[in-house]
């Protein structure tokens, strides 16, 4: 038990050699990150099975990678274990996505990866290469808010705002796939994001309104 906390492997005195009972997401990512550049987390597991064998082995030191963020190539050098979220926040100064639960529960780090809404805390940066990564920073056009963001403002769907960027991205991803949502659809569709200030009443209205607005072809 020396120096070891049962609830998180982050304090382990020795790095775990392989995943074991009670492993944390970060420990797991570290484990796979050392061995391969193409194995992802649970979210991408099915795709990973179908992926071809990795052409080369990278890491454990920092490696140059290219991410396609909001349509533009961005070069960054990170260790293979670095998550997409940490790459954006710690290395690229893209801080709209937030680190909150840090283990794929709360959705504050939501981005849209190759058209699919994901928790960026649960995707490795190296695995995000070759796919377009839509982030909150890419939503607005100049000074014009994206209709989803505008709807959040109109319905006061935010208080402290720390969950908001993740919610806006989750809502955008949801509306992209469900252009005509009912209120009931919204309650189910946005269930993967959490807010502590309690802004859900506004968010429900905002998402329904944004979907209508986007169908009108005004934007997005």
């Amino acid at each position: 038990m020396k120096g070891r906390c049962l609830v998180s492997s982050r304090k382990d005195p020795e790095p775990p050699a392989k995943p074991k009972a009670g492993f944390s997401r970060r420990g797991f990512i570290r484990g796979v990150g050392l061995g391969s550049g193409a194995v992802g987390t649970g979210l991408l597991e099915r795709e990973a099975v179908a992926a071809p064998a990795p052409a080369n082995v990278v890491g454990p030191g920092p490696v140059p990678i290219t991410l396609t963020i909001n349509g533009k190539p961005v070069n960054v050098t990170v260790e293979p274990r670095v998550t997409l979220l940490d790459a954006m926040r710690n290395y690229l100064d893209l801080t709209g996505a937030k680190r909150v639960c840090d283990r794929g529960t709360c959705g504050a780090c939501t981005v849209i990866l190759a058209g699919k809404t994901v928790y960026s805390c649960s995707v490795l940066a190296i695995d995000a290469q070759g796919k377009n990564i839509e982030t909150i920073e890419g939503l607005a056009t100049g000074n014009n808010l994206h209709p989803v963001s505008a709807a959040f403002v109109n319905h006061d769907a935010q208080q402290c705002g720390y969950c908001t960027a993740g919610f806006v991205m989750a809502a955008k991803g949801f509306i992209d796939k469900h252009p005509n949502p009912t209120m009931e659809d919204v309650k189910h569709g946005l269930g993967g994001n959490l807010c502590r200030c309690g802004t859900y009443m506004g968010i429900r209205q905002a998402v329904v309104e944004a979907a209508k607005e986007m169908k009108g072809g005004k934007n997005g």
């Binding site: 926040r89 801080t95 709209g96 982030t135 403002v153 705002g161 720390y162 806006v168």
Partner: peptide
């Protein structure tokens, strides 16, 4: 009135202290 910092927050531009990355930052 709508909250005045709403657009900043809803566009991800609002900077929280935990977002800051001054030069030579250590973690």
């Amino acid at each position: 009135y709508k909250r005045v910092d709403g657009p900043q927050k809803a566009s991800g531009r609002a900077k929280y202290s935990s977002d800051l990355k001054p030069k030579d930052l250590l973690f």
